[in-house]
């Protein structure tokens, strides 16, 4: 198993290289002079030329890529124009906030989605099943940015249960309890879509598994139905649900852009939106690369988890 995991880790490397090529290619498509785009239109010609040399923009594209990726591998993502600090510092600072939000949302979505999917499969066509179908439909049609606003109106403005924005209270905040209190609404908002997708898939996977021969075997040997579902069917269904949870990590990380903006959560998503508005290209580039790399790791974790529960994959 260890060697299989190691092999899987190695396969992540070409993906990471591919990601960097795409990000580089997009940045190379900036209309006009990239240095001017990075420095803004009021930059002095000397500064533009210096940056051009520094970024190697006077060389061929492949050369430029290798200079660029070499810098990035050394942790040099360049300097943010709008914040006047190294991109890597800003990105890493905000990465933890995004990971906290996205991670919580994904865990919530996984637990709720698996539970709802199993219940809905077991009570097929029952009330719970119909309720779930409706919820999934609403969930995937509801824009996260609108749902966030509705939750703010209800739980922050009307009921005053949770704060409407930010990650910590302005006065005396910052403790784990305070952060958790601020986390509730954005994490819920972000979890809704993923919950629906995971639940729908779990339902289908359970219904498929329950028709398998080994389920009949379990019943034939006298295993009570509750245990047949919770142990035999659920474990088999997980094999096909786990990769989907990995994919959902991507939707959650992407959805974080909206949710962080709505709730003013100090993560990479809200940073990206501001950076795009201020045309801070290097900051966008750094943020996109780091989040994409995080997504690759999420998928890697899903693969390893899948191997752990399915001996046939080892």
């Amino acid at each position: 198993m260890a060697s299989t995991i190691l092999w899987r880790l190695l396969t992540a490397i070409p993906v990471l290289i591919g990601l960097s090529v795409i990000v580089f290619a997009i940045m190379a498509m900036i209309p006009g002079d990239p240095a001017t785009a990075i420095l803004g239109s009021y930059a002095t010609p000397e500064n533009v030329e210096r940056l051009n040399r520094q970024l190697g923009l006077d060389r061929s594209l492949p050369e430029q890529y290798f200079i660029w990726i070499g810098n990035i591998l050394q942790g040099d993502f360049g300097r943010s124009l709008s914040l006047n600090r190294p991109v890597i510092d800003e990105v890493l600072e905000r990465l933890s906030a995004t990971m906290l939000l996205a991670g919580t949302a994904l865990v919530l979505a996984t637990i709720a989605g698996l539970a709802a999917g199993v219940v809905s499969a077991v009570r097929q066509y029952g009330l719970a099943d119909k309720a779930l179908t409706l919820m999934v439909l609403i969930g995937i049609s509801m824009p996260a940015f609108f749902l966030g606003l509705l939750l703010i109106l209800l739980f922050a403005v009307k009921l005053r249960w949770f704060p409407a924005s930010g990650m910590t209270a302005i006065y005396g905040g910052g403790g784990p309890g305070d952060i958790a209190h601020h986390l509730v609404l954005p994490a819920l908002t972000l979890a809704v879509v993923a919950t629906g997708v995971i639940a729908r898939l779990t339902r289908t996977a359970m219904l498929e598994v329950l028709r398998q021969d080994f389920i009949r075997t379990a019943r034939a040997k006298g295993v009570p139905e509750r245990r047949v579902i919770a142990r035999h069917a659920f474990k088999a269904a997980l094999v096909s649900v786990i990769p989907v949870i990995g994919i959902q990590a991507g939707f959650v990380l992407g959805g974080a852009v909206y949710v962080e903006t709505v709730f003013q959560w100090p993560g990479i998503g809200s940073m990206l939106v501001t950076a795009i508005s201020t045309r801070d290209i290097l900051l966008v580039q750094g943020g996109v690369l780091v989040v994409a790399a995080a997504y690759v790791l999420f998928n890697l974790a899903a693969d390893v988890l899948q191997m752990a529960i399915d001996p046939r994959l080892r």
Partner: peptide, 12 residues
């Protein structure tokens, strides 16, 4: 391999 909306942001 990109988180869905992130690539769109990079393009914008």
């Amino acid at each position: 391999a990109f988180p869905y909306i992130l690539l769109a942001l990079a393009i914008v």
